[in-house]
Computed example of a mutant assay.
Amino acid sequence: MHEEPILQVRNLRKQFGTGCKQCSDIDNRNLEKNFCKQCGTVYACQDISFDLYPGEILGIVGESGSGKSTMMQCLYFDADVSSGEAYISEPILAGKNVFELSSQQKRSIRNHVYGMVYQNPVQGLKMNFSSVGNIAEKLIAAGNRNVSEMEATSKRLLESVHIPIHRMKEEPRNFSGGMQQRVQIAKALSNNPPILFLDEVTTGLDLSVQANVLDLIKNIQRDLGISMIVVSHDLAVIRMLADRTIVLLNGEIIEQGLTDQVLEDPQHEYTQQLVYSLL
């Protein structure tokens, strides 16, 4: 593993609501979980900091409402952070807190540096475009204008995620959930992103389909050496994919370490409950 992280996140905070005297003082918050009963403010992400290294899969695990998906939305610029910093080790972005960039610069990062696979394929795909058209859309956003080149790239990517050639011109709305996820993965990979975000990508899929999608993700990671952040409430998914794991509870990191270490010898009471409920 290289020493220089590809992504550094520092003190990411996201709150919904303005806060009040009861909850605004960080050191002396009076919260019910991550919720202020007095004013209704939700502290979805509280001072989340981590590094992602080249070629690493980082797992983020936690129950529903722990802040995992909000964190992903902030990282991918689907939501604005309340405060915090993130740095990407690309020469053009050196030393720049990407949360403070213009919307145009953020769009450029989404088009060239990041790939995203959403839990619900409807968020990541245009269901009435063909599968090839979905990938072409991403390539055009990244500046590609060569039609035959885009078609060749789209076909290659769809083949790599096991979409049959005779269905490539079909619309994803005709596909099963597992196939939709695979098209979404192909689309996310189309701009060769060094960083890929995967948000609960196996939720709602049959077990055999889940296994196929997870195999696909592992193979992609091995072949392309992409850095990935994988969010899941399912420890089996994290165990299969992640090199290191962060455990979130009520918007805070409560434990982190090598995945084997965290799952074999959990230190925090909540992580222990998570692990033992699996056994």
Rank of each mutant, 00 (worst) to 15 (best):
M150L: 03
E252H: 03
D206P: 01
F99W: 01
D223T: 04
M228L: 11
R107I: 02
A211D: 06
R13G: 13
T202V: 09
L93G: 02
T203A: 15
T70C: 00
L207F: 08
E3P: 00
M1V: 08
M116R: 06
K218S: 15
L207C: 04
L189K: 07
Y276T: 12
E269W: 00
G19Y: 09
I48T: 02
V201A: 03
Y43H: 13
D265L: 00
I253C: 03
N250K: 07
Q256N: 12
T18G: 03
D199L: 01
P172D: 05
A136R: 12
Q181Y: 10
K106E: 11
V113R: 00
M1R: 00
H166T: 04
T259G: 09
S160W: 00
P194I: 04
V132L: 14
S130H: 09
Q267Y: 06
D80H: 03
L158R: 07
K96S: 00
N30D: 13
N174C: 00
K68L: 10
C23L: 12
E269C: 02
S227E: 03
F197I: 05
V117N: 04
L249M: 13
R244C: 08
M179F: 09
A211P: 00
N192R: 12
Q210D: 05
S277C: 02
I163M: 07
G124Y: 10
R107V: 03
I60M: 11
Q105D: 13
A79D: 12
I48Q: 03
T202N: 01
C36W: 14
V61G: 08
L248Y: 13
D223L: 11
D51V: 05
Y118R: 03
C74L: 01
S66C: 07
E200V: 11
I92E: 12
N191K: 02
G177M: 06
K155S: 14
I238A: 14
S64C: 01
D223K: 11
M127A: 14
F77K: 08
S82G: 08
E255H: 13
A79W: 02
L198T: 10
Q119E: 07
F16L: 10
